[in-house]
Structure formats: C-alpha cells, structure tokens
C-alpha cells in the first residue's frame, strides 16, 4: 500500500468512509515537517502521513473526528510553544505550525 495520504484518502472514500485531510499551511521556526505536508484521517481514526514529528497528530486527529461526519467543512489549528496546550500537544522542537483540516464525504 502506498504511503501517499491523498491516494489512501481516495481509497477510503471509495470504500464508503468519510475522511479528513490535514495540511501544514504555515511553519515558524524549527518545525518538524515543512508546509504542504499532509495527514489523511479515516473516520475510525486510522491515519496515513504526518504533519509533525508525531507531536500533534493525536490532537489533529481528535479535531478531525469532531467534524468528519458533519457537512464538509474546514478547521484551522495552530500549535506552538506559546500555545496554552503546549505541555500536552506543543512542539518539542520549539517551532510553531498552522494546520488546515478539510473533511470529505464519501457520498459527496
């Protein structure tokens, strides 16, 4: 199976799953993955790809699952050392990242 998030997302859609795609849209300082990096998320929580070194994926998936079964939408997230939740989901490397989540319906 390919590691490509988009290819996996399409396969999941074809099998009837709703999916979300998270994309790093901006980085400041020392961020683990460059802008454009993507993470595909299936409605049961399975994920392929990455938007960080593993630091924020858990929270990104949680956010994606909140909106994955609602009408197609986007959500913007920002993580960094200045974030209130830095201790839980901040970036160990001290960088900041901004992430956009797109949801896609299997029947859309």
């Amino acid at each position: 199976m390919s590691n490509d998030p988009i290819e996996n997302a399409l396969e999941w859609l074809k099998k009837g799953h709703n999916v979300a795609i998270a994309t790093v849209v901006k980085t400041w300082g020392s961020a683990p993955r460059k802008a454009g990096s993507q993470l595909a998320i299936r409605e049961d929580g399975l994920m392929i790809g990455s938007v960080s070194g593993g630091c924020v994926e858990g929270d990104v998936v949680a956010n994606a699952l909140e909106i994955i079964n609602t009408p197609a939408s986007v959500r913007l997230l920002q993580y960094g050392i200045t974030n209130d939740t830095a201790w839980e989901v901040g970036l160990a490397c001290g960088g900041d990242i901004k992430i956009r989540i797109d949801t896609i319906k299997s029947n859309g």
Partner: peptide, 28 residues
C-alpha cells in the same frame, strides 16, 4: 475538497505535471 478533486490530484500526479491547489484559508 471532494472525491472528484482527489481523483483529479492523483490523475495529474500520474501525468507528472506541475499543478497547484488554491483555497482561501478558512473556506471549504
């Protein structure tokens, strides 16, 4: 984003051409 867009992305990746996705940051 929708299924058709993903299909289009993969089709163009396979054609090995450069392309760009454009969106307004907070609009679906």
């Amino acid at each position: 984003m929708d299924k058709a867009l993903l299909e289009k992305i993969i089709k163009n990746k396979n054609k090995k051409i450069s392309f760009c996705l454009i969106s307004q940051a907070d609009i679906n």
